[in-house]
């Protein structure tokens, strides 16, 4: 990306697109531009200690061995670190004590991974968004998505006696089932908005349909999630309109963002044999396309963006492959950062 403005300036430049707003006397909150570095995630408070520790463990030692070693090390290095069994909410899936079938678990894993990976991506923006309110908004959206991920992964884990944490922290890259859209880098703020827009419109269609699932737990999780996703969609629609209708620069960036993220859209709507087996437990992905297109087209029309401005016939749509464990090069580094704390200090709490 050829960034001439940082994201704070981009947002400021796009300000005129909000005619209803009176003079806001918004404080200048420009920050150093670091939109492309994959710096430590704020949710890993002990990562400094971890990187200062001896070289990483070999990958094949079991959790108990790693635990014992690092418990000793942690007790030595940090007097206040407690290592204990995680006492997470056990019943945050829709129906207490419901057990997922293998197929439903695989489906829940896909949706849970989408939410988890997007949440991890959005969390990066905290302290880096163009304005303080946006730090909070993206943080709130990430928190909602993390809640959806917890419910879905907890439910998925009931089929194999694994906890939500086992699934989030102890699976390797090829075991993740997220679509490529969610693992793409944040890019600049306009890229994050473009990805958020595609994701939120899709999720709203998906969760609306999933409330009719014959699987009571999936239906309950969907009914909870759809109310929250509605806020996310509204938020990214507002930013799309604001950037597209702002300055030449903000519009140009919005179009670049859409151009770069749009190729990952089709993967969300591809049916595969799992959906045949699920029957009434889940909507077929292809059945969500018409509803998505209707909202998408309405947003673009209001933003005065034509399809030709962000699609390139030579590029087309990505083949993806995330649903079967084939991922882009971006997922590995994300997982390394997300999982390092849990793997270095198994069972750590703070």
């Amino acid at each position: 990306m050829n960034a001439q403005l940082n994201d704070a300036e981009l947002a400021e430049a796009a300000q005129p697109a909000e005619p209803a707003q009176p003079d806001t006397a918004r404080p200048e909150t420009a920050r150093p531009e670091t939109p492309h570095s994959e710096a430590a995630h704020p949710a890993t408070p002990h990562s400094e200690a971890a990187t200062a520790a001896p070289p990483a463990a070999t990958p094949h030692r079991d959790a108990a061995t790693v635990n014992a070693e690092y418990e000793a090390e942690a007790a030595d290095a940090h007097g206040d670190v407690t290592v204990d069994e995680l006492d997470l909410a056990a019943e945050l899936s829709g129906v207490p004590s419901a057990k997922a079938t293998a197929d439903v678990a695989e489906y829940a894993l896909r949706l849970g991974d989408d939410a988890l990976i997007l949440s991890q991506r959005l969390g990066w923006w905290i302290s880096r968004a163009p304005e303080l309110e946006e730090d909070m908004a993206l943080g709130n959206i990430a928190l909602d998505l993390l809640g959806h991920a917890r419910s879905l992964l907890h439910y998925a884990g009931t089929a194999s006696d694994r906890s939500e944490d086992d699934l989030a922290y102890w699976r390797d890259e090829h075991e993740f089932r997220c679509a490529w859209l969610f693992e793409q880098p944040n890019g600049d703020f306009a890229h994050t908005v473009a990805r958020g827009l595609i994701a939120a419109i899709w999720m709203q269609e998906l969760y609306t349909a999933l409330t009719q699932s014959t699987d009571a737990s999936l239906a309950a999780i969907a009914a909870k999630s759809v109310k929250e996703v509605a806020y996310h969609r509204d938020h990214f629609v507002q930013w799309t309109l604001r950037l597209a209708g702002g300055t030449d620069e903000s519009r140009r960036r919005m179009l670049v963002g859409l151009t770069d993220l749009w190729p990952y859209t089709d993967e969300l709507f591809r049916d595969d044999p799992l959906h045949d087996r699920l029957g009434g437990a889940a909507p077929r992905p292809s059945s969500l396309r018409a509803g998505f297109d209707e909202v998408w087209d309405a947003v673009l029309a209001e933003a005065e963006i034509t399809v030709e401005e962000f699609t390139n016939p030579k590029i087309g749509q990505s083949s993806g492959g995330g649903r079967h464990g084939n991922h882009s090069t971006h997922l590995g580094p994300l997982l390394a950062e997300m999982q390092v704390l849990a793997r270095r200090h198994p069972g750590a709490t703070w």
Partner: peptide, 15 residues
């Protein structure tokens, strides 16, 4: 009054 942000200090509040 005007809404500054749909997302406030906690998920349940707007600013």
């Amino acid at each position: 009054t005007r809404e500054v942000s749909r997302f406030g200090s906690t998920a349940c509040k707007s600013h």
